[in-house]
Design a protein around this nucleic acid. Structure first.
Lengths: 131, 131
DNA sequence: ATCCGCCGCGTACAGATGTCCTTGAACAGG
DNA sequence: CCTGTTCAAGGACATCTGTACGCGGCGGAT
């Protein structure tokens, strides 16, 4: 449908922050960036502008400052990115990715437990449709 | 160490095929590409050449044809890419990605079962992993 | 009213990427 | 030997990405 151009790494990073904030100015998004991540104010600005032209966010002028907010379901976007990765790296199969995450990526015991719960829940529910 | 430049999407695609084949000529890699994926022979050739300059594969001349083969652990490369994604999309936490895969991505029952086994095994082992 | 510094927008730009065309040499037949 | 085929190599090039500079406006200090 939308055929929105895919998000680049940087754009995704910024989009994530914006989703977290709900709606925010360039400055606000910029300030939220984690300490380790050096990034110029204007760079964030550019990303937000591009996100807008790509149709992922909308901007509203408040005073003389643009306030950005999302226009898409983060879940959808993330899902797309994940699928993309699964396709390219794992031939479209999710399980190998899971295996990788479990075996290679360091997962803590508590995470494992949580994961098990997830599976249990899904198995008991078993409805194939969306809520 | 190596600080090999990261792989782009296209390069990754080709690399995957090559890993699958073990070692192959440009033509062989090109032919393996799935039906839906239109891609020119020379494009594959370019990717392989770039993969070589980036240090991911090595080429051996057989007759007058280059035979490419991997020079890195696919596991490593894939791991890097996955980590990359986890960082950018899930703030570095693997569990949310798992959740996403389980809840959003369609996982079959058998896959779920396999997943459960994976977890069981890992929980019983509890490896103190020391390479 | 004037000047100064901060802010944010739009524009710019170099490097990476995706895709392919062209050239020239090595072959395989006819 | 002449011709069509097959490759490796280069080079071309339009985009896409990452990152930043410069100019005009607003608000406070002089």
């Amino acid at each position: 449908m939308a055929a929105r151009p895919p998000l680049s790494k940087g754009e995704m990073e910024v989009a994530r922050e914006l989703w977290q904030l709900g709606s925010a100015t360039v400055r606000q998004v910029h300030e939220v960036f984690p300490a380790g991540r050096e990034i110029d104010f204007t760079t964030v600005q550019t990303y937000l502008r591009r996100l807008e032209t790509k149709g992922y966010v909308k901007a509203r002028l408040v005073g003389r400052t643009l306030v950005y907010s999302s226009r898409v379901e983060p879940r959808k976007v993330i899902g797309q990115a994940v699928n993309e990765l699964v396709d390219r790296l794992f031939g479209g199969e999710a399980l190998p990715l899971m295996r990788h995450l479990i075996e290679e990526g360091g997962i803590s015991d508590s995470e494992l437990a949580a994961l098990r719960q997830l599976i249990d829940r899904l198995e008991s529910e078993e409805p194939r449709d969306a809520p």
